[in-house]
């Protein structure tokens, strides 16, 4: 199909959709309106279970089944990238050369690494209180690990990060989330029900019943998943070479 014909198709399709969406936007309730029934019910339900961060309560208690799906998507992507970026028979691994890095950059990277790691863990721990949660903290913690690559070189990172361990960690965290859900089912109520643990006092670290548990499971799973994802891409970009050289 020639480029001109494709442009013409995109123009027709895009114009149609634009007209349709603009007409729909005019029928939408005005921006910033007060009619949010589901939201108000969610806030009430979250406060009834002493969870300060209502979004964490929606994610890990009221709609925990969605978060199970979201975590499975990340888990499937990690296995998928592992399968897609594997070293095939006609490739070999070349050892990455050390990279000299300017002194201030190296010092900054090695200084910020622990700070970022602690911030990631802080964001996970306070997931059900202040803004943040398992997912955000997991990504911050995993990214902080890669300061070793940015500040030094890939060999330094590889020494610290055994990929097999993180992949197993990812699988263990995923099964921890599911087992917590099953425990609720076996405990008499429903799958992923927040009825196992007491809800604790409001705005404290242990408040919210199983929300902190699920939060920690997702935090660990996301951190391991991001490390493994980046490991696959770094291996492809830095180490795996064409041809069957030495």
């Amino acid at each position: 199909m020639s480029r001109r014909f494709r442009l013409w198709l995109v123009a027709v399709g895009g114009a149609g959709l634009a007209a349709l969406f603009t007409a729909a936007a005019l029928d939408l309730p005005a921006f910033g309106g007060d009619h949010h029934p589901y939201g108000d019910r969610a806030v009430h339900a979250s406060l009834s279970r002493h969870t300060a961060n209502v979004i964490a309560s929606v994610n890990f208690d009221q709609r925990a089944f969605d978060t199970l799906g979201e975590m499975t998507i990340l888990f499937a992507a990690v296995i998928g990238c592992g399968a897609l970026l594997r070293q095939t028979r006609d490739e070999h691994r070349a050892t990455p050369e050390p990279q000299e890095v300017a002194r201030p950059v190296r010092r900054y990277a090695l200084l910020v690494l622990p700070v970022a790691l602690l911030t990631g863990l802080y964001v996970i721990a306070h997931g059900q209180l202040s803004p943040g949660g398992g997912f955000q903290g997991g990504v911050v913690a995993a990214t902080s690990l890669h300061l070793l690559y940015l500040g030094a070189d890939y060999r330094a990172l590889e020494r610290v990060r055994p990929v097999a361990l993180y992949e197993t960690g990812d699988a263990v965290a995923t099964s921890a989330y599911v087992v917590t859900g099953l425990a609720a089912l076996i405990g008499g109520s429903a799958f992923l029900a927040n009825t196992l643990l007491p809800y604790g006092t409001f705005n404290t670290l242990s408040s919210g019943g199983t929300v902190p548990l699920l939060n920690a499971a997702v935090g660990m799973e996301v951190a391991c998943a991001v490390v493994v994802l980046l490991a696959r891409f770094l291996d492809q970009a830095v180490e795996i070479e064409e041809g069957n050289g030495t």
Binding site: L68, I79, E167, S175, V178, A190, F191, L192
Partner: peptide, 22 residues
Amino acid sequence: DLLPLLVAVPLLGAALLVAGGR
């Protein structure tokens, strides 16, 4: 209440396979 198990069981199996796959 066994309905959600239709998803939980394959997911647990997959996690088991990845953890022990090596």
